[in-house]
């Protein structure tokens, strides 16, 4: 029986992973755009990205564009795999194949 991924299952982390997974492989989202797309606040988003990064599900790249710091978040291969398994489990629950 497949288990839900407890790290991804949290609503905001689910939205973060959904957003990053919708991009082509190796393409990331800039922090401000991710915040807009997920409807998160600055602190909230930062904390959840850190949780996902510790699990190895996302990579965080900090760079300077001109004089402005820019943080880009990208889903890793492990993150994409975990997200796909999580979605499959959700679908199994809906289909009644999971208790």
């Amino acid at each position: 029986m497949a288990e839900l991924d407890e790290i991804i299952h949290q609503p905001l982390r689910l939205r973060i992973m959904a957003a990053l997974n919708a991009l082509p492989v190796s393409t990331g989202l800039e922090f401000a755009r991710l915040k807009k797309l997920t409807g998160a606040t600055d602190g909230n988003l930062g904390a959840h990205i850190e949780t996902l990064a510790k699990a190895g599900y996302v990579a965080v790249d900090k760079a300077f564009v001109g004089k402005k710091p820019q943080t880009t978040v990208t889903a890793t291969a492990a993150g994409r795999g975990a997200f796909a398994r999580h979605v499959a489990t959700l679908q199994q629950i809906i289909a009644g194949k999971q208790p």
């Binding site: 689910l14 959904a18 919708a22 807009k36 797309l37 997920t38």
Partner: peptide, 26 residues
């Protein structure tokens, strides 16, 4: 574990974010 209604809500949430990302990229 969650029930099918909660799972369905989670999938709806995912679809909503995916739609936003696609539109944003366009």
């Amino acid at each position: 574990m969650i029930d099918s209604q909660q799972a369905s809500a989670a999938l709806d949430d995912i679809n909503d974010v995916v739609r936003r990302v696609r539109q944003s990229r366009i």
